[in-house]
Each structure stands twice: as structure tokens, then as C-alpha cells.
């Protein structure tokens, strides 16, 4: 009896995967997270609200690459656009929200780190997100590398990956770093001459330099090649995690991933959509 059930489940999954985008509730193994979400027709996704081009809340709603990826995944679950509930998250609320089932997944500039993987699962990665450095137009201080930032006022968001990465890898730079709660404030500080440079994800810098046109410039210094993942509640059952990986791979193959990128980050960062890194963070194979 049991064996039969297992076989049936496996069979169901195979069908679901084969069926690809045109999923409906019946395609998922009964009781699986996908099945629950598809049946409910609703999904709660944690997103950032202040990362331009990545996760941004505007008057007209949520937008950015993370938001598009969320919609892509929801669509493959057969969930309509208005069935997606976006939940604003911040750095300190992400893990607790997952642990307490406040959201079904988090797509919020969430870098995959070993420390985080202790408490949550990551599907993906779905985007390589290097950090970069932005200065006043014309680079008056002639900054060419991270070393040139020693003794300078480098501005960054507090509680960010950049802050922790620089603490670890460029402690000398960290000593004179100033932290604000948003990259937009850092941009203002650089424009005012209150900070010498600003750092965060390259996409955000690009967006900010575009907003303050002509006053800022993004340098070609890239560091912290962190990878964004889809945050999930930690479970032994990796079915949902694996399904998301599969979905991301398909989106990559069929061009919908590249379209999302080109619609958002690609509008300011030159060079086109990057290669998607090897999938399989918390749930390989």
C-alpha cells in the first residue's frame, strides 16, 4: 500500500515537472507545499521595499527583479497575479518570518550564506549580485580599488552584506565606513560631499546614479560576488525547494528569466543578463 503511494507520488511529480508552466492543482503531489499553495490559489512572498530595480514598493505596487521572479514562480503554481501577497521584509525580519510561517518564501536580495543556511533553506541561486562602488561624477579622489578606500568615508547600508563582507575582507576600509539605513541616503551623502564613496549591490548603485543623473558614477570595482537565493522555511522535505530550482532552470531556458532581468536591472546595468550560476544551494540535485 505504502509503496504504491510512494510510486504514485513520484509519478505525480514526474508529470508535474514534465508539464512545466501550465500547472494546475492536480499536477502536484497531494499534501506537498506546491499542492497546498496551488489549491489555495494564494502565496505570500517576502520582498524588499527599498531596493530600486530589485525589490521596491512604489505607488503603483511592487516592482523589481525579485518581484518578477516571485511572479514567475507563482505563475508556475497556477496562482493568478492577485493571488500573490507581497509582504515587506527587512534584514532582521527575514529569518523570523520564515520560521513563524508569516510568508511562504522570501525573495528579497537574500544572499546565500552558510550561517543563514543553518536556520533556513535556500532555493536557487537565481541571481549573482556583485557589489560595487559609486563616487561623485569624475571620481575626484581617483579611487581605483578597494585599497584606495582606506581612510576614506565609504558609505553603506547598515546590516548589509557589504558591511559584513568589508568587515571581514577589508577591515582597514571598515574602520572609516559610515552606515545609513538606506543606499539612497548614501547617494545623497556622496552628492553632498559628506561621504567619499558609496557601496551596495551594483544594480542598486546603477539605479541611484541614474536617478541623480550626472552627479554620480559607478566604478568598475566589483567585490563580494554574493548569490541571491529564495529563502524557505527549513524542513527535511526538500520537495518545494527542488521544485523551485527546477522552475528557475526552466525560466532560464525559456528566456523568461532573461526578460525579467532586462526589464529591471538590465535597464541600467550594461552587459546584458548574466549567466545563471549552478542551481542547488540547500537542495542539490
Amino acid at each position: 500500500m505504502r509503496g504504491l503511494m510512494k510510486a504514485a507520488t513520484a509519478f505525480g511529480m514526474a508529470i508535474a515537472i514534465a508539464a512545466g508552466g501550465s500547472a494546475n492543482a492536480a499536477d502536484f503531489p497531494a499534501g506537498s507545499k506546491m499542492d497546498q499553495l496551488a489549491k489555495a490559489g494564494k502565496i505570500r512572498v517576502g520582498v524588499q521595499t527599498q531596493y530600486p530595480l530589485i525589490g521596491m514598493k512604489t505607488l503603483s505596487g511592487y516592482e523589481g527583479f525579485d518581484v518578477d521572479v516571485a511572479r514567475l514562480i507563482a505563475a508556475k503554481l497556477g496562482i493568478k497575479k492577485d493571488g500573490i501577497e507581497f509582504v515587506p521584509v527587512t534584514t532582521p525580519t527575514r529569518e523570523p518570518f520564515l520560521e513563524q510561517d508569516k510568508v511562504d518564501m522570501i525573495i528579497a536580495a537574500y544572499s546565500i550564506t552558510p550561517n543563514r543556511e543553518k536556520v533556513i533553506d535556500f532555493a536557487g541561486p537565481y541571481l549573482p549580485s556583485p557589489s560595487a562602488v559609486m563616487v561623485k561624477k569624475g571620481n575626484p579622489l581617483g579611487i581605483k580599488s578597494m585599497k584606495d578606500l582606506i581612510g576614506k568615508k565609504l558609505c553603506g547600508p547598515s546590516g548589509s552584506n557589504q558591511e559584513s563582507y568589508i568587515s571581514e575582507h577589508f577591515p582597514e576600509v571598515r574602520k572609516t565606513m559610515v552606515l545609513f539605513d538606506s543606499s539612497a541616503k548614501c547617494a545623497q551623502a556622496v552628492i553632498n560631499g559628506q561621504a567619499d564613496a558609496s557601496t551596495t549591490e551594483v544594480a542598486i548603485l546603477a539605479a541611484l546614479s541614474k536617478q541623480n543623473d550626472g552627479q554620480l558614477q559607478v566604478l568598475g570595482i566589483n567585490y563580494d560576488m554574493s548569490l541571491y537565493g529564495v529563502g524557505l522555511k527549513k524542513t527535511d522535505d526538500k520537495t518545494f525547494c527542488k521544485w523551485i530550482n527546477k522552475t528557475l532552470e526552466e525560466a532560464y531556458k525559456d528566456g523568461s528569466w532573461a526578460k525579467a532581468y532586462n526589464d529591471t536591472i538590465g535597464t541600467v546595468v550594461p552587459g546584458g543578463a548574466p549567466k545563471l550560476p549552478a542551481i542547488g544551494a540547500s537542495c542539490p540535485g
Binding site: 534584514t91 532582521p92 529569518e95 543563514r116 558609505c155 545609513f180
Partner: peptide, 27 residues
């Protein structure tokens, strides 16, 4: 903390980002 001063909350925010297993304890 939101305006360039590394006081308690600013440092807490950094700590929370790095020590993601003990977020609630830090707060």
C-alpha cells in the same frame, strides 16, 4: 543609526545580518 552614527541600533543591525541564527537573542 539611520544617519551615519554607529550607535547601539546600528551595530545591532549589523550583528543581526551576520549572526542570523540568533537574531531574536540579539534583539
Amino acid at each position: 543609526s539611520a544617519f551615519g552614527v554607529a550607535e547601539a541600533i546600528s551595530v545591532m543591525t549589523n550583528m543581526v545580518n551576520v549572526h542570523s541564527t540568533i537574531v531574536l537573542s540579539i534583539m
